[in-house]
Amino acid sequence: MSEENMMTENETQEPSVHPMDSWLRQDRLPHIWCSGCGIGPAFSTTISAMKESGYTQEQFAIVSGIGCSSRAAGYLKIDSFHTTHGRAIPYATGLKLAKPDMKVFLFAGDGDLFSIGGNHFIHAARKNMDLTVICINNFIYGMTGGQFSPGTPLGAISSTSPYGNEDSPFNFPHLADAAGAVYVARWTTAHVRQLKKSLVRAFQKKGFSFIEIISPCPTVYGRRNKFPLGIQMMKNLHETSIINHNAKGSELDIQIGKPIVIGNFIDRERETFLERQAAFQERVNKWLKEKKGETGD
């Protein structure tokens, strides 16, 4: 059979039936992620979790910022908002408050969420805003070619830290915990089963939930830091990470040469922003009754 005929035959076949097809914007594929990148497994695990969460496709909205991870918004076939660098959280806040019945979540990188967007992160957690934040921590600014980020470990080599990173990284779960998140977990792309369960839990949880996903970036992080292939780092994450659900926030620092502690660390209840609205509205109504429509001019 000639090559031409093969193509014709392929085109007349039934559309492919990969279980995730209906969740993807097929007309946007192939995606931009490099081979060996961890965003792919993180993304597909997120879709699996969405499907198991009990929410319909129409109920989900994804908001992202700028960077490799944030491109996920362009591939998911749901209402998707690819916003400005670092501003996905306040954008999502507005969207969620206007559409409280939707499940609004973020999918963004360590640089986006914790450097330029750091202030937004802590305030949304403080307010216990009803958002799920998925952070792909690949230790680097990938899209701009590998500059160090607030996730880059001390001493790591990057294109702007050729002598080794002089800054300590943020401990993201510890920060989320301290700022008031009600659900905090960290997994790696080598732990997709545990990660999926954790994502389902986060989607179902009311309030501000946060999941950090440690993810290899062979192209601009790994090749400068002894993991030139994605599979090498995956293997390392798989073999050396320590699962400890009871670990304290302060024990979750990431350091070169030391095992990464992973697990579901925080799962607690605290009145969420939306839950507070009911009591708030009661106070408003009481005030209106007493003041009889006085407008305060």
Partner: peptide
């Protein structure tokens, strides 16, 4: 809905998000 944000960057982002949620913001 009235919401006080952490800064004006966030305020502007929030009104855009709200607008796409159907609000007049």
């Amino acid at each position: 809905i009235y919401i006080q944000m952490e800064d004006e960057i966030a305020s502007m982002a929030a009104i855009l998000g709200a607008s796409w949620g159907g609000a007049k913001s």
